[in-house]
């Protein structure tokens, strides 16, 4: 082979390879060409094998031509590869198209009961103010449920708590969480900031706003110098946390034998905002809790000296709070557990 032959062969290889590249139907065909022409045992190498027979002066010339050919083929391969890749991707994307409007694969979603959630939320709010959660028994004795709370046997105030009694002598189903006040005071020393959530029972016919089983959250704060003004401030903060800024509140006299002075705490009607509607009995106000300064008799039963310690207690129904907050109109729904009712709560 002489120089001219080699250069001609290189030219021919370039021409035929470029033609093959532009005719290649897909990426594997290009890969084949790549190996056949440029590979270790490819055609280009085969041609250059004849270079050994050439004169030393001619070799660099062949080398230069061969590099040009290789460069041209590589460029053509890359260009064709890019061209084919884009087409293949387009084709793949078209092939993989799905009906994106089909429904998703449903995930089972649980929910948390609104009574318990309201209790939890109340606890979280008061925990910010240093209150700690305690619990006390649901089966109480008459002494703690009534007498130590300044409600003697046969006292007319017992009408406020229609009671379910049990067959353990001297015991009943607690009618409120207030006996927890006594138990906390007996167990802890001031400063006391206690929150007592739990289930309560009453002898009460069931209707849209009454049940014989329900929950309550009791609060108790006792120390030297805790005032009614402090109670007002704290409960106003509670209402703001629970129902949002800008809701009017009012305190008015209430009656509980275990607090004096006793207070009822109202928030402006969340339905009508004040003018009066059926939801608020046309008063414009909704009562959310009862409260008052702990009665000296109760402090003494708690083992505290009423001349030294004073404080306040409050009690509220988480279901009532929940009803006001979520616009629920029937208390019975809470213990009925229709899943359609439970679904929205998280």
């Amino acid at each position: 082979m002489d120089l001219a032959d080699i250069i001609r062969d290189l030219g021919a290889l370039e021409t035929s390879t470029l033609a093959a590249i532009s005719a290649a139907p897909d990426t594997p065909a290009l890969d084949g060409i790549d190996v056949e022409v440029l590979g270790k045992k490819g055609a280009l190498t085969g041609i250059l094998r004849g270079i050994g027979a050439l004169a030393a002066d001619d070799r660099p010339r062949v080398g230069a031509v061969a590099n040009t050919v290789r460069g041209a083929i590589e460029a053509a391969l890359a260009a064709r590869r890019a061209e084919l890749g884009a087409a293949e991707l387009t084709e793949r994307l078209a092939r993989e198209r799905i009906d994106v409007t089909l429904p998703g694969r449903p995930l089972r979603r649980g929910s948390l009961h609104p009574s318990i959630e309201a209790m939890t939320q109340i606890a979280e709010i008061f925990e910010q103010f240093g209150f700690v959660v305690h619990e006390s028994p649901e089966i109480e004795d008459d002494l703690t449920n009534f007498q130590m709370l300044n409600i003697p046997p046969d006292h007319p105030a017992r009408d406020l708590w229609d009671t379910l009694y049990v067959d353990i002598p001297g015991h009943l189903l607690r009618t409120h969480t207030s006996p927890g006040q006594i138990r906390v005071m007996q167990a802890m020393k001031p400063p006391i900031r206690a929150l007592l959530p739990g289930r309560c029972f009453r002898y009460e016919s069931v209707d849209a706003s009454h049940g014989f089983e329900f929950f309550q959250v009791e609060g108790l704060m006792v120390d030297e110098g805790v005032t009614l003004a402090d109670m007002k401030g704290l409960l106003d903060e509670f209402a703001r946390a629970m129902f949002g800024d800008g809701k009017k509140t009012r305190f008015r006299p209430g009656y509980y034998p275990f607090t004096e002075p006793s207070v009822a705490f109202d928030v402006e009607c969340l339905v009508c905002g004040g003018p009066g509607c059926p939801a608020c009995g046309r008063s414009g106000w909704m009562t959310i809790l009862g409260a008052g300064m702990v009665h000296p008799v109760v402090l003494q039963y708690g083992g505290l000296d009423p001349e030294r310690y004073q404080g306040f207690a409050f009690g509220m129904g988480p279901e009532r709070i929940s009803m006001l907050k979520h616009g629920i109109t029937d208390l019975r729904l809470f213990m009925e557990n229709d899943v359609r009712f439970l679904e929205p709560f998280r």
Binding site: E135, R193, V263
Partner: peptide, 27 residues
Amino acid sequence: LARVNGYDRIPSTLPATALPLFRPSPL
């Protein structure tokens, strides 16, 4: 006295007394 005076005329303050010790919540 509180009721005749009116509860709205009692100021609203936040307690300035000591905090109780930490106690884990039973919840």
